[in-house]
Simulated assay, not measured.
Amino acid sequence: MCMIQQGNKILLMNRPDAKGFPGYIAPGGKVDFPESIVNGAIREVREETGLIVKDIIYKGLEESCEPNTGLRYMVFNYLATSFEGELLEHPPEGELLWVDREEALKLPMQDWFKRRFPLFFEEGTFELSEVWDEETGRILDETIKHYPAGLSQGASWAD
């Protein structure tokens, strides 16, 4: 998933019910083997919006695990602050809308995206992990971590 920011505005798409995950969401999708995760994010943005993102920053990981089925679903999240190109006139995944960042959470969107939304704009990276039960729809366990930008005091890289 890649949030695109231009000044105080962000680009969201309004996904229709038929596409799954209805409501406003950032562009994203599946990674094609053998492309890298970041190249998959760049490609998905181009396919869904027509824009070619330039300055792209890794922001964090969200994963969901379902122990009864063994499913693990991982979303790598990026923030792009520059791009080239023009928006598609007929985007394939839903209507595109530039919206003020402060107004975005007033739009209809999935709860999981609403929870993740502010993390794109905080310094450093994040990690969200949840274990959920598909039958009941309940979250059984959750871990939320924030990592500051750069190395922590006293940490160093080994040669």
Rank of each mutant, 00 (worst) to 15 (best):
I10T: 06
V38T: 14
E103R: 12
F117M: 03
I52A: 13
I10G: 00
S64C: 05
Y24R: 00
E123D: 15
L97H: 12
E62K: 02
E127P: 01
L105D: 05
M109H: 06
E103P: 03
W98N: 11
I4T: 04
E127V: 01
G29A: 11
K114V: 08
A41K: 01
L128D: 07
P91C: 05
L79N: 04
L151S: 10
A80E: 00
E103I: 07
P67Q: 01
G124N: 09
G137P: 06
V53T: 12
E66N: 11
L11E: 11
W157I: 15
E63S: 14
R138D: 15
R116I: 07
E122K: 14
Q6F: 10
T49P: 01
L88T: 03
R43C: 04
I42A: 14
F126W: 08
I144D: 03
F113Y: 15
M74E: 01
E48L: 07
E66S: 10
P148V: 10
Q5N: 04
L79E: 00
I42L: 14
L151T: 04
Y78V: 03
T143Q: 02
K59A: 05
L71R: 11
W112R: 12
T143E: 13
L97S: 11
K145L: 15
P92D: 13
C2L: 09
V131R: 09
I37D: 05
E103N: 13
E66H: 06
R138I: 08
N8M: 03
I52T: 15
G20W: 02
H146E: 09
K59C: 02
P118V: 05
G60L: 02
A149H: 09
G124L: 08
E127R: 12
L105M: 14
T69P: 03
L96K: 06
K30I: 02
K114Q: 09
T49E: 05
M1V: 11
A80N: 06
E103T: 09
E122Y: 10
Y147S: 13
T125R: 11
D141V: 01
K9D: 11
G154C: 07
P22K: 06
R138S: 09
V53I: 15
R15A: 12
A104W: 08
K59P: 09
M1H: 15
D133C: 11
V38N: 07
Y58D: 05
K30T: 09
T143D: 07
F76T: 00
D133A: 09
H90N: 15
E63N: 04
